[in-house]
Design a protein around this nucleic acid. Sequence first.
DNA 1: TCAATATACGACACCGAGTGACAGGCTCGA
DNA 2: TCGAGCCTGTCACTCGGTGTCGTATATTGA
Lengths: 199, 199
Amino acid sequence: MALDLFTARGFDETTVDEIAQAAGLTKRSFFRYFPAKEDAVFGGVDVTGQEVVEAIRARPADEDPWESLHQVLRQWERQIHTSEQTLASLRLIESTPSLHARLHQKRAQWRRQVSDALRDRPGVRLDPFDAALLTNAAAAILDTVSQEWLRSDGTADRAALLDRAFAFLHPAATIRGHSDGPFTTPTAGRAEIRRPAAT
Amino acid sequence: MALDLFTARGFDETTVDEIAQAAGLTKRSFFRYFPAKEDAVFGGVDVTGQEVVEAIRARPADEDPWESLHQVLRQWERQIHTSEQTLASLRLIESTPSLHARLHQKRAQWRRQVSDALRDRPGVRLDPFDAALLTNAAAAILDTVSQEWLRSDGTADRAALLDRAFAFLHPAATIRGHSDGPFTTPTAGRAEIRRPAAT
DNA sequence: TCAATATACGACACCGAGTGACAGGCTCGA
DNA sequence: TCGAGCCTGTCACTCGGTGTCGTATATTGA
């Protein structure tokens, strides 16, 4: 497997020719299976999570968006089987800048979709900025949890970490039903911010 | 300037040879000034923010870490002059996957430093996971603000957006001095998370 | 069984990013 | 004038990635 070569010699130090040859292929054939060298690592890791987008869309419209993200991601994490291979893959990704960048890149369109899904629920009116903010924050949580899980050599309870992070960053004002209006901030003002949910 | 060529023909469609030739240089000399092609874009944009790390460290130890991040980043944003060039650079970065990935990569070590700085203040005892979480969330805020600012063609008030985002994601439990102990979440069940630090 | 077709792979050439090595020039101080 | 140091061009090379073409091996249909 390519993963073995990568973990043994490092990602950048292993050429595609070597991977291909180890698999009994040509470089050209390698690129018929993987669009890029990095994708030989992501093969076993689900980074797109298309189900997440649909799960978000299926959530009740009156649910707090942050809670929706929490529940869906919690369910999604549960399905990930954290094998030894997954651990090795994540470790490699974490320790290789180009791989980490690629992961972020692969998650970019996913974030867009999730953000749209949050707003697309019928009856929901959520500010684009808020939706993007919540989504990016959730992605940051995923990253942090993964990182911590790796730091613990796979012994940490991912679900517990996730819960903790979501509880920790719980938005102050739960927007629900409609947005607070067009947020025209006068030049430098701060302070137009928090309104306790539902007065 | 290289930026003009990029915006005109696209980043991937512009060769280093072309940039170099337009600047009266050789490809070899180009790489003596920029470590990579992408860095010809980041030249005008401060992405590392070394001052941020020091500013964090200079914050009072009894200040809420989230508030520290908020104040420091607010101050930092103020110093960024949002010229037409910056707008063009950011637009290019946003629309080019490889550039966006590179930005994230460049910010990786910065995030580590900020996270460490949060914990390094004398008298502060902050969980590594919490520190990383807050830092990543703050980075997510920066990203979201930048993205929204770009969407508004540079007319949005960045400081106001930043304030709004920081207020919105304000951590539920403000840790200060010491952590609040294990966060046993009801749904999670197993809570082997972390020790309250200093009994 | 035989032929037509599709699929997969190897072989080769090619491009662009990035690096190493070497050979001049240029300036500045002795 | 000489040499040290620096900047730059030139050449050659590696590696990731792609386009093209030829060919072998299945697969299908009669």
